[in-house]
Amino acid sequence: MRKCRIAYLACTAAIIGTGLGAAPPVTGHRIHLVAPGESIQKAVDAAQSGDTVLVSPGVYHESVTVKTPRLTLSGMGPGTVIEPGADAATTAQTPSTTQTAGTKKSVSCAEAGNGICVLGTKEQDVEGVTVANLTVTGFARAGVFGMATDGLTVRRVNAVRNAVWGIAQERSVRSVLRDNSAQDNGDAGLFLANTINEEQGAADTRGTLIERNWLQGNRIGVTVRRLRDLTVASNRLTGNCAAVFLVGDENKPKAGALTVRDNYVEHNNKSCPKTDRLPAIQGSGIVLTGTEDVLVTGNTIKDNVGSSPLSGGIVLFKSFVGVTSERNRIQDNALRGNAPADIVNTETNKGSNTFQRNSCRASTPAGLC
């Protein structure tokens, strides 16, 4: 059996090279093959930095925590499916620890309601982890969740029908979320924040890239909350209640220095009820609230229609805590068929934001097209 497994691993080097877009493993780095009925977590725990855990097609009922730097966790395509196990949470909890009677209690990835967790610590980010080529579905919180990561790559992951987020991260830098599919998740398909449970100023992501993802049927396609130095590019967003939300607040530094470019944003007309944070939303394309120095350019935005205060093709909305959006540039976008208008600016500080060379028919107030 051992000889068969080694021979099989030799054959899988080509699969990894093709599936991950990378060269075969460096000499000395191991491939840990997981077959149906085996534990992914045991393979991850046995792996060392630079190793690959390769998961065969099949359904795996477990959550997986990765804390080893430069580890690759890869399936063999959407037929590698990770679903909740018997110890999974039924409701979302705080991701890492909870406070009980003055002491901190560790909360596992499964107990927090997540599928795959990539976790660093307050003292040290976990570096260079890749999660790729698999499906995560049915979790009470997020399909994939990263915290305190540096250089996390998530690609060709299908995150579907998770109760809160498809793929989410906080306190992370230099991430690449590319070629993923996030569908029918309860909140955002992709959610990126400085911190989730605290009020702090915007954090510098040092160039995080959200690129070429397909986001459909979520409450919000992409949410970027209290972050700076991040790009949302060439994604397809359709059938969500809202496509892209860029969110800031009164803390310093303000959210901003973001780029949203070359995205296809169409028919995000699913209707979602209000929450503690937001009113009911429907027909929202790209929404900026409480941001500064954001460039929105080269996007195709059409047929996003609703009657929410946040409805419209590109919407600059006054922050719910009274913070204005400043020095944002909306230029060279193609908009049509959005209602109540292609461009909506409800900001009180209207003169600070600029609108140039956009192809559109109607704006509120008039004159922005």
Rank of each mutant, 00 (worst) to 15 (best):
residue 4 C to E: 11
residue 7 A to Y: 02
residue 13 A to W: 08
residue 14 A to L: 10
residue 31 I to D: 02
residue 35 A to M: 14
residue 37 G to A: 07
residue 41 Q to L: 10
residue 43 A to W: 04
residue 55 V to D: 01
residue 66 V to M: 08
residue 100 T to D: 08
residue 102 G to A: 05
residue 106 S to V: 15
residue 113 G to N: 01
residue 114 N to P: 12
residue 115 G to H: 02
residue 119 L to E: 01
residue 125 D to Y: 08
residue 128 G to E: 00
residue 129 V to T: 02
residue 133 N to Q: 05
residue 134 L to D: 01
residue 137 T to N: 07
residue 140 A to E: 03
residue 147 M to S: 13
residue 157 V to A: 03
residue 159 A to I: 08
residue 165 W to A: 08
residue 168 A to T: 05
residue 174 R to H: 03
residue 176 V to A: 09
residue 184 D to N: 12
residue 184 D to W: 10
residue 185 N to P: 10
residue 186 G to T: 04
residue 188 A to H: 06
residue 194 N to A: 09
residue 194 N to M: 02
residue 203 A to M: 15
residue 204 D to I: 11
residue 207 G to W: 04
residue 210 I to F: 02
residue 215 L to T: 07
residue 226 R to V: 13
residue 228 R to T: 05
residue 231 T to A: 09
residue 239 G to K: 00
residue 244 V to F: 07
residue 249 D to Y: 07
residue 255 A to H: 00
residue 256 G to M: 06
residue 262 D to L: 14
residue 265 V to L: 08
residue 279 P to Y: 03
residue 280 A to T: 01
residue 281 I to S: 01
residue 284 S to N: 01
residue 290 G to H: 04
residue 293 D to C: 10
residue 294 V to M: 02
residue 304 N to Q: 00
residue 306 G to I: 08
residue 308 S to Y: 00
residue 309 P to C: 09
residue 312 G to L: 06
residue 319 S to H: 03
residue 325 S to P: 10
residue 326 E to R: 15
residue 331 Q to L: 14
residue 333 N to W: 09
residue 336 R to H: 15
residue 336 R to P: 13
residue 337 G to D: 01
residue 341 A to P: 14
residue 343 I to R: 07
residue 343 I to F: 13
residue 345 N to C: 10
residue 353 N to Q: 01
residue 354 T to N: 01
residue 357 R to K: 15
residue 360 C to L: 15
residue 362 A to D: 12
residue 368 L to M: 02
